[in-house]
Nucleic acid binder design. Structure first.
Lengths: 192, 192, 192, 192
DNA sequence: GATGAATGAGGCTTCATTCAT
DNA sequence: CATGAATGAAGCCTCATTCAT
């Protein structure tokens, strides 16, 4: 392992331990000392990699894989399989651990910058969905009683709701099942 | 205003200011000093009413009106109007303010006791819903392709999802609209 | 019980409870709130009887009964029975409780005024003893190899040593035995 | 001075200043701020070395040098010179300062853990003395009218009494004289 | 005289961050 | 780059004391 690799490994170790601890005790209740202790590095090392405690949050994988979403707009075909595929893709980027999901939300809510960025991401997600939904409505695949924007809103809300609900320890055993079920019902409601 | 009334007023003033500040800056970032300053009382007064900072949280109105829910099980009639009525009733107990809603979630997620109690409340909510849903399925009002328990899960998730989504500043202007729309689609998906 | 008696009773109740608590937790660690709670009165009542917390200490029976001591100088006869009598008299004014004895010392040591006053009392005690001892030496009752002042010092130290040693839970079961034994040996050492 | 030495120096500086201040104002009346100020370090530094304020007390040299005492049991010869030697050895470990001695007692009495540990030490001291005394009695060096255990009790009490009496500003100018005189009389009383 | 809510100074302790080694 | 001792601002909380009822 050369120098560059070692650095990346240290950085990742810190991030992982930080998120673990955030999941256990929450962001504010977690101290830099705890993080470095668990990561097996000195306290000063933390600040070699991050300007300050808050900055670790920026490396947190949020619940939205922006890249996957942006690919959606170039895809063709019926909306329901498309959405299923997208959801599965997004889930692949999420931790399969309730506490970690919940910790992500907790961090997001307790940090203005993170909250802002999450809101923006949700909004972007919605903006990508709108034309896809509108097209599906035009093709008659889904009902047109609601405007596409409203449907997009409800879709994003549904996604987020499933995550947080599951993160709290409720619902299905596997997150993917929880999300799948939610959208199954969602699309049934949208039947033309 | 007699002594007893004054006490209650002081206590309520503290709670109100606390929630306000939690909404503005988050729970952890809010100091007891800020709370008492805004409430116009001395710092020590706070601790005459609450054992410690954490304890104000227990007096926070959460997003679930347990009483309203428990009444549901004694009611009769078709499920959809019943649920609509229940939702409206619950919304009446919520703050009509996005930050306050979000602050409630933030507090809940950043506090183990509160999280536990919220989870329990959601679970109770679900348990009350299950027989109501099962009865509606038996009467053929809603689809039976999903077991009642699963539907109850999704209903609670839907409710919570709408709150947090709206709290983040997304969706409809009015919370009641956001919740109503969510459940409109939800029930459409459940059509037999 | 008339008004005056009631007042005295309340005052005494407060003092008793205070000393009890001092014995349990020490002077500093005991709060006025604890005292009034145990005494069954309101916090304000405490300050109707005492200017401040420190003042309760002034009512503490210290380990030296000044009156008894001052009587000594007018008494006649051989020193040993005289001293025995004095000791017994002084013990009669002490609490028969190790913690209480220890608490008295603790209070004395943790309070400058009290420490000063205790030192003064010991000094007075010594001053009363000196002529009595000198006279006994003159009568040949006790050895003259040590000056009377030195003997007086050792006597007072012996008395105090027995109290604190016993207060710490060591030595004889009964305080009077501990003191008696100490002085038995003390006088043996003084045999001419 | 390397890093490790510096650490030890800082720690010792804190302890020394703490004891100084305890002697001046008592344990409770001394604040961590005062200690660190006098030691010339930041307030936080104190807590790098001690978990909390109470913990400095554990590093305080108490009035009993346990090691010296335990050596006693392996020594031979007449008891009186042996005891003199032991006393001198123990005094060598004590501060030659009345306030410091008194502060030690004050701390001991105001802290349950410390009190417990002091009591245990006195008890150990006694247990070491008992066989030595019994042997001296068997050899006819000292009187057998009192059981060895009782004599040991009185010896320890005598030692402690001398310390506290001197600490209060009474008795001889030098502590060693006060202790020596006490034990001179003590052993005279024990003459066979 | 009794009450106990209100006060606020001041203590202990935490912890992100710096920096010399 | 790693280390961890040092920093000090800032928070929580305690508690003696006051005073209106």
């Amino acid at each position: 392992m050369n120098r560059e690799e070692k650095k990346r490994a240290t950085r990742q170790k810190i991030i992982d331990c930080a998120l673990e601890l955030f999941a256990e005790n929450g962001y504010e209740a977690t101290t830099v000392h705890q993080i470095t202790e668990r990561a097996g590095v000195a306290k000063g090392t933390f600040f070699n990699y991050f300007e300050n405690k808050e900055e670790v949050l920026c490396d947190l994988q949020l619940f939205i894989a922006t890249e996957e979403i942006s690919k959606l707009q170039y895809k063709q075909g019926p909306i329901i399989p498309l959405m299923r595929e997208l959801l599965m893709e997004m889930l692949r980027h999420l931790p399969f651990n309730r506490s970690l999901i919940l910790a992500s939300f907790q961090c997001t809510l307790s940090n203005k910058k993170l909250l802002e960025s999450a809101t923006v991401k949700f909004e972007e997600f919605k903006q990508v969905l709108i034309p896809v939904i509108a097209a599906a409505q035009a093709r008659g695949e889904i009902s047109s009683v609601m405007p596409a924007e409203m449907i997009a809103d409800l879709a994003v809300q549904n996604y987020q709701g499933a995550l947080i609900y599951w993160g709290m320890g409720l619902g299905e055993d596997k997150l993917s099942n929880q999300v799948t079920l939610s959208f199954e019902l969602f699309f049934k409601g949208l039947a033309p």
